[in-house]
Amino acid sequence: MITVGIDIGSITTKIALMEGKKLLYTDVSLSGYDMEKAWQAIYKKMLERTGKKESDISFLVSTGYGRNNVSISQKKITEISCHAAGAKYFFPKVKAVIDIGGQDSKFIRIDDTGSILDFVMNDKCAAGTGRFLEVMARALHVEIDDFSTLSGKSKKPVTISSMCTVFAESEVISLIAKGENRENIIAGIHDSIASRMISMMKRTGVASPVVMTGGVSKNIGMRKAIEKKIGMTLNVPEQAQVCGAIGAAILGSG
């Protein structure tokens, strides 16, 4: 049975194609303004690259912020269920999932049977999300992909105390003006996101193993900041960014 999962996030669109339990194809592209176009393009590319025909696909599930825009979707499932299913695919014993996405961050608790026990998400403010990192990268004139390497060079992370993205940006600009070095600021930014994540996690209780999914998991500095605060190692699947789409494809197979 061939199933497809499409995860339309606020920043990126992800797709996964599975045959039974075997992951055959994944891809990531920018969501842009037109979500309809975004999924159509990534879907068409998948068909071309894999040589599959639409009629080969038994079930298609959409998830993510833009899931309702996928007109060919046979089922729409929220990101919480899909990320949990995706994390479980890579780490069957998973008990908790951290996902830091473009506009929200989530912490999901899973019980022994693999069912979702509870979840918490960030409040309305963008602080603690991928968007927060983007704003900070812009303020620091650094590519977001370099955050990881730069934070690793930090000797003394600064403390970013503002909880709001806009205020934190001006706090960062003030630190730059004061001559604070970039590495320490970036490490401080990671610490501040990690702190927000921890307070969210404490609301439901932490259990291991913890899996981190979502694009931000590629950032080793961010991962280390969270690991340091929770005192546990995070498990990060190779396909972490596509976990939601993979979970959607899995849930599509019933």
């Binding site: 912020y65 929220t78 919480i80 269920s81 069912s115 979840f119 918490v120």
Partner: peptide
């Protein structure tokens, strides 16, 4: 089972909140 949501003071239906409530419904 309990979900916490924070809403803005706006007449616009916030899809992000709808999505969170749908997740709650799913679990």
């Amino acid at each position: 089972r309990l979900i916490v949501i924070e809403r803005e003071y706006t007449p616009t239906i916030d899809q992000q909140l709808v999505s969170r409530l749908e997740s709650f419904r799913e679990i």
